[in-house]
């Protein structure tokens, strides 16, 4: 646990230097929340109670999705760190650390995420609650299960980003790929538009891909669209994907590790 806090403290020191940027970021999240608020408000005025969800639930889903983007933004994962280290050649310092690289990446990313959750996501949600009809979890149980599911969502995103980072070791640059990657993750994760609106083939695809673990499952649990057995099924889905992706991550890292050692020696 000490490990995570050290990275959280680090993130705090890095960010505290630019206080003005903090306010700008909060401002930009507000704009995003404001836009989903109006989109759903207008759409529900046209057809109230569409797809078995109330306007209040839908607005809460949308605002939560935008606020959580401050911690789940795929542009700020381990892949950014790995790419920088590879480019500057200082990845060797990571290899000499008395800490498993995979664990190191997780600790770093989790520490920063906790920090961003406290300083950006929470204030955004408070603003959403005060000004934009953001509501508390559907029930106490939903709140607890949501918290678990949110952590698992983070794990899925971390594992995917780690794999992308491994790719950057091979291709040396992932900047151009990450534009598409970020957009596709947000789309299939249901960050803005929930998966129950997806038609036909796209819907089936989104239902089996791991991305929905990041936003769709936790958010649906929060607003009470997924309850009881269905919520636990969602958690099971997340766990299976975490196991698969972490395994792939380990395999990729052991491949990359040998490659790095050979190049370095």
């Amino acid at each position: 646990m000490r490990l995570f806090w050290s990275f959280t403290r680090q993130a705090f020191h890095n960010t505290a230097v630019y206080r003005f940027e903090f306010w700008l970021q909060l401002f930009s999240v507000f704009f995003m929340m404001y836009s989903v608020f109006w989109v759903w408000k207008i759409l529900y005025k046209q057809s109230p109670g569409a797809f078995g969800v109330t306007l209040e639930q839908m607005v809460t889903y949308g605002i939560l999705g935008m606020a959580l983007e401050t911690i789940f933004h795929p542009g700020r994962g381990p892949q950014t760190y790995i790419t920088e280290q590879i480019r500057s050649g200082s990845i060797d310092t990571d290899l000499t650390k008395p800490l498993d690289f995979h664990v190191h990446m997780f600790a770093r990313n989790f520490g920063e995420t906790i920090f961003r959750f406290g300083t950006l996501a929470m204030p955004s949600l408070a603003i959403g609650y005060l000004f934009l009809d953001f509501r508390l979890p559907a029930s106490f149980t939903n709140g607890v299960v949501f918290t678990i599911s949110l952590f698992l969502g983070f794990m899925v995103l971390f594992s995917l980003n780690f794999l992308l980072g491994m790719l950057s070791v091979v291709t040396l640059d992932i900047r151009s790929i990450s534009w598409a990657y970020n957009a596709l993750v947000r789309f299939f994760a249901g960050q803005m538009v929930p998966l129950w609106l997806f038609p036909g083939f796209v819907g089936t695809l989104a239902a089996v891909l791991p991305f929905k673990s990041i936003y769709f499952i936790p958010l649906s649990i929060y607003i009470g669209k997924m309850n009881g057995i269905e919520a636990w099924q969602g958690i099971g889905f997340q766990l299976i994907w975490i196991a698969v992706l972490l395994l792939f991550g380990r395999l990729a890292w052991s491949k990359v590790h040998t490659r790095l050692v050979i190049q370095g020696g």
Binding site: V39, I42, L43, Q46, S47, A50, F51, F187, M192, V193, L197, F198, P199, V202
Partner: peptide, 13 residues
């Protein structure tokens, strides 16, 4: 596509 899904499901915005 996101715009398309929304407008398609709700007929118009």
């Amino acid at each position: 596509t996101l715009i398309g899904i929304l407008v398609n499901r709700f007929a118009h915005l």
